[in-house]
């Protein structure tokens, strides 16, 4: 099966529940007419993504660029299937591997090894694959004896190494990536880049959200620029970012 992503008029409204309209009391009172409002829904809504239409085919390396709050990470999460669109449609074919938040699902009170096993359960792996993940992640993270220490006691760099090792022990057809991976010590970064480059090469489609234009020029074949949730530019890196 060939990997592909098709989005048509994709929209995401992000209700801001922490805004004043949150509580049941307010809602009941509003229904009772005590609170006079002109709009029919008293929710505060941010339109995170508006009417995105694009398709990504095999072999494309796509960078999502735009300012903070433009909707890059939200779009990655929609592609990963975490947020469901309120309007429009999305069709994703192919195994998805997402490197959105490396620490998601880690248990700080468990040891590194226990966390690797937990991750295997999260991914619903069989026993053989779980063992393979354990060996592979243990080796790549280079944690040695620290693997049997609760990760609460890890330094920030060690935690990044472990989560990076676990997150990248995948071979997805579609790779979704946020730019968190640029942390870690220098020695590790060398190996990390090599590993990421392999992952990127082997994936049929990559979508990465980043501010780092050097990465865009080095890795990507296409750039989508988002602004306030709208798709404003779509083209090759040179077209969108200007000639290097």
């Amino acid at each position: 099966m060939t990997a592909s992503i098709e989005a048509s008029s994709l929209s995401i409204d992000f209700p801001l529940y922490h805004a004043p309209a949150r509580s049941l009391k307010k809602r009941l009172l509003a229904k009772a007419g005590i609170r006079v409002r002109t709009d029919e829904s008293n929710r505060v809504v941010v339109q995170a993504l508006r009417q995105l239409t694009f398709s990504i085919g095999r072999g494309e390396r796509v960078a999502l660029v735009g300012q903070n709050g433009a909707g890059k990470t939200t779009l990655l999460r929609v592609l990963a299937g975490i947020y469901e669109p309120v309007a429009g449609s999305l069709r994703v074919e192919g195994e998805i591997g997402s490197l959105i938040d490396p620490g998601a699902g880690m248990d700080p009170d468990s040891t590194g090894r226990e966390n690797i096993r937990l991750r295997a359960l999260y991914r619903n792996m069989d026993h053989a694959s779980a063992m393979a993940l354990e060996n592979e992640a243990a080796e790549f993270s280079g944690l040695g004896e620290f693997l049997d220490v609760p990760i609460r006691g890890y330094s920030a760099g060690m935690a990044v190494r472990l989560s990076f090792a676990m997150a990248t022990a995948i071979r997805p057809q579609i790779l979704l990536m946020d730019e968190w991976f640029l942390a870690g010590d220098a020695d590790f970064m060398g190996r990390a880049e090599e590993r990421l480059a392999r992952l990127v090469q082997e994936a049929e489609i990559m979508v990465i959200a980043t501010h780092e234009m050097s990465i865009v020029r080095r890795w990507c074949t296409r750039v989508l620029r988002l602004d306030s949730g709208r798709l404003v530019q779509d083209g090759t890196p040179d077209e969108v970012l200007g000639p290097a």
Partner: peptide, 9 residues
Amino acid sequence: LLPPPTIHV
């Protein structure tokens, strides 16, 4: 290390 191919619509 991933489950079988998926289509997600």
